[in-house]
Design a protein around this nucleic acid. Sequence first.
DNA 1: TGCTTTGGTATACTTGAGGTAACTGAGTTA
DNA 2: TAACTCAGTTACCTCAAGTATACCAAAGCA
Lengths: 119, 119
Amino acid sequence: MSMSSSHREDSPCSAVSTLQVLSGKWKWLILYHLFEHPSLRFSELMRRIPGITQRVLTKQLRELEEEGIVERTVYPEVPPRVEYAITPYGQSLRPILDLMHAWGLEHLRRKAERAHQES
Amino acid sequence: MSMSSSHREDSPCSAVSTLQVLSGKWKWLILYHLFEHPSLRFSELMRRIPGITQRVLTKQLRELEEEGIVERTVYPEVPPRVEYAITPYGQSLRPILDLMHAWGLEHLRRKAERAHQES
DNA sequence: TGCTTTGGTATACTTGAGGTAACTGAGTTA
DNA sequence: TAACTCAGTTACCTCAAGTATACCAAAGCA
C-alpha cells in the first residue's frame, strides 16, 4: 500500500494504460452521466450529451463495454429498449473522475482569475 | 468539502476541462518523469521518452508551460541548456496521476487474468 | 578543416478519431 | 397508408494531431 515509493518501479507509467482505455472524446462524459443514474437508455444518453452523434455514442459505448466498464442490456421489445449501466469494475473509476472534476474546477477558476487581472 | 453531493451541480462535467488541458499523447508521460526528477533537460526527456520526436516534445512542453504546469528555464550557455520543472501548480496533478497509475496497474492485471483463462 | 552537441524551427506528409447524412426494420399510432 | 419510434448501421469526408526529415547557430574537439 505504500504508493509513493513503490509507485515508480513498474516502468514506465501504467497511468498511460488508464488513459488509453478511457481515450475518446466523450467517454468520461458518458461515465459522468452513468454515475448519476443507475442505468440509462441510448436515447437518454443522447439527450444528456449535446453534440454527440449516434455513430460515435455507439462506438464509445461498445468500447467501454468491451473493457468491462459498462454493461449493455437489450430488452427484446418493439420499439427496442437498450439500457446501459456502470459495472462494479467501472465504479472503481469514480475516485479518478472526482479528482479530475475537482482539479478542473480549480483550473477554470484560476484561468478566470488570470483573465480578470489582464483587463 | 462534501464532494459527493456538491459534485454534480456544476454542470456539466469539469473533469472534461482537466482532460482538455492534459490532452496530448505524451503529456502525462512527461509529467511522470518530471515528478521523479526535480528538473530535466530537453535531451534528458527525449532519452526517457522513447518514440517521441523533438517537434512534438517541444510542442507539448510549450503547452504545459502555457497552462502554468511546467516551468522552462534557459541558461545562456553554449551548447544551450534548457531545464524543465513542475510548478507548484503542476504538483496538484500528482494525486490524479497516482490514482490513474494504480487503476492502470489493476486494469492490466485484470486483462492478463482474462487472457490467461481463455487459454 | 570538418565533425559533434544542444535545443530547437520549417516544411511537407500521414493517419485515424470523430463528424455528416442517409438508411434500416418491426411494430404502434393517426 | 403513411408517419413515427428506437437503436442502431453504412458509406463517405474532414481536419487536427502526430510523424519524418532537413536545417540552423555557436562553441568545442580532433
